[in-house]
Write a protein that binds this DNA or RNA. Structure first.
Lengths: 155, 155
DNA sequence: CGCATGTCCTTCGAATTCGAAACATCTTCA
DNA sequence: TGAAGATGTTTCGAATTCGAAGGACATGCG
């Protein structure tokens, strides 16, 4: 038998997976419709846009929580579409640094308004600003904990 | 430029996707290691266990937030392993009703302790019980909103 | 009844994901 | 220098996912 604390914990756990799943699916559908791009690819581009100097493949994979090989696949797709470029890093020829192209910035600008609106709509039932802050804080703690125990010995 | 409200909203949005992703990945890894089963399959079994009379394929797909065809695939896999059974529904020969087998209940019982411990560990940084309640409440609202606007006209 | 339409599940092909293994390049240390 | 191990990325095969199309049954209406 579960204690009351465990019950509310399990509830939060299931709710997190469900909400995350639904939110991802909703955003994915919209992005595919409006911009012929998947949510996974969109996340790559937006993360890269926040790093004008580019990111190494491994770092990008860690940020996005995907495997290195999975990232290789998507980066190849995006490079074929001219939305990003692979480059080399000075001083280490093993490293591949990825940067967005102006075309990608244009695409992001094109998609951003609808994207923001969809997310706002999804959260429309959350009216108290403190709820947002609580949500962001707890989920941030959760991510931090999970990243800390995440295996580092890949490949 | 985003307002402060939009900033905290965007933060919550990104945190939700990230935490959900990390949590799913962590649980998936553990279940594969301890029980030779994926998180997706484990969720099917646990949902079904909560419904001793079985569930129709469509209803199960909706609950789990997966496509009908994707569910068909996983149900076939699980049936091959003897963890669930397909049956017919009285009065409508189109419908397939799925039920867990005793073997699946045994597997769930075997995996449950480690599963609970992992989740508890993931949430270990969340110490205030009201935070759990807030989390469950907000994410529940979010799921409800997203389900309401979800497309019902599937393949 | 008999056809049109709707519902439910599965099949099919394409896209995406992962982990293991392969490859290439550093770094360390003798 | 050069071998051994570490690090970074890609290739490969297998598993999983989706949406569209197909097939089977149900329902409504003439």
């Amino acid at each position: 038998m579960l204690s009351d604390d465990e019950k509310v914990g399990a509830e939060a756990y299931f709710a997190l997976l469900e909400a995350g799943n639904l939110l991802f699916a909703a955003v994915d559908q919209q992005l595919r419709r409006d911009g012929e791009i998947s949510h996974a690819q969109f996340e790559i581009l937006t993360k890269l846009r926040a790093h004008p100097d580019g990111l190494r493949m491994s770092d990008l994979a860690n940020v996005l929580v995907v495997s290195r090989s999975g990232l290789t696949y998507q980066v190849t797709q995006l490079e074929k579409r001219g939305l990003l470029q692979r480059g080399s890093a000075p001083g280490d020829d093993r490293v591949v640094v990825v940067r967005v192209t102006p075309a990608a910035e244009g695409l992001i600008d094109h998609l951003e308004p609808g994207h923001v609106q969809l997310v706002r709509q999804a959260f429309s039932a959350v009216t108290d600003r403190r709820d947002f802050e609580t949500l962001a804080r707890i989920l941030g703690q959760l991510s931090q904990t999970l990243r800390a125990t995440r295996r580092h010995d890949d490949g």
